[in-house]
Design a protein around this nucleic acid. Sequence first.
DNA 1: CATATAAAATAACAAGTGTTACAAAACATG
DNA 2: CATGTTTTGTAACACTTGTTATTTTATATG
Lengths: 181, 181
Amino acid sequence: MARKESITKQMILDVAFMMAREEGMQNITARRVAERANCSTQPIFRSFQGMDELTDGVYDRAVAFFQDYYRLYPRLEKTPFCNLGMAYVAFAREEKELFRILFVPEKPGKSLYEILNGSTENVKAEIQRAAASGCQDPGGLFMKIWIFIHGAACMTMTGDYDLSDQETRKLLNDVCQSFMN
Amino acid sequence: MARKESITKQMILDVAFMMAREEGMQNITARRVAERANCSTQPIFRSFQGMDELTDGVYDRAVAFFQDYYRLYPRLEKTPFCNLGMAYVAFAREEKELFRILFVPEKPGKSLYEILNGSTENVKAEIQRAAASGCQDPGGLFMKIWIFIHGAACMTMTGDYDLSDQETRKLLNDVCQSFMN
DNA sequence: CATATAAAATAACAAGTGTTACAAAACATG
DNA sequence: CATGTTTTGTAACACTTGTTATTTTATATG
């Protein structure tokens, strides 16, 4: 009775997300998305109320993408802190645009902590251990390490900081050590 | 023999810089600058080859602005490191847009180190002292502290980190202490 | 197969961008 | 004061943006 849908909401979201990943959010335009999806701009506005709704969807996919990235990242370090740091810095290096969208946003979206939400359970467990073994201020410890990791990642994103995985590993372990004592 | 110039290059630059400071670089357009300068767009294109040249000028003023800000910032802390940190974080809090332009740029401009250029002489002197008093790796020490400070400032800019000056002071002193030992 | 109906394409609109051609205005010199 | 030169304003061009009206196309059902 009616024509079959050939460009789905998913397909549009896929294309837009890929563009955000490669060129950043601000370069997503209706016509460019349409071009990469091999269609006109019409299917976009059938599936989404407007470009804002599309970019909101892209943002949500970026959140999910990071959470998967972090979940699947190999945990080779001695401490959850350092594992978190390695993954976070690697994400900043390999996904510069997504890192910017998620963690250095111009318009306030989710906070760092909301994005990490369940992802830091093991880190919190580490804090418990630290508290048990005599650390006075486990919350402060977490904050310090987190600030350091965020700084390393931001500098990686902008290219002000360019260390190998090996060097990053040593750096993070050193710093964790310093903060623990 | 000719009409007197009423809108100078300086005036245009002043207006554009103020706009960058308040709304960020991407919101600077010819018509909006003209409006705030109470003139047409013509004087802009007489003084500048194009908008790129204007925004380049704004960037240079931002660099100078930060350098002045840092030079004039009161040095209340025990160590140059902590003074640098306090100034840098305060700048991120009070000048969010300029901080983003300078230190989290989308298009590569000057590096962090180029912007700070002569500003870290006293910090380097501190490293010398650290080296003299038995620190094995003064370069590494500088890097660690700098990464931490940058992380704190970036989180301040985005609102993920909101501590009073007092708390920031304690945090920085603690961390410097940790890294020195 | 013919047709109704939903989807996609085409094409346009309004708004906003950088930039420029041209006209109006102001002022120092003759 | 008249004049010529420079600055400024007006208005336009070409382009890009989001969005929408309209036409075309494809397909499930009669």
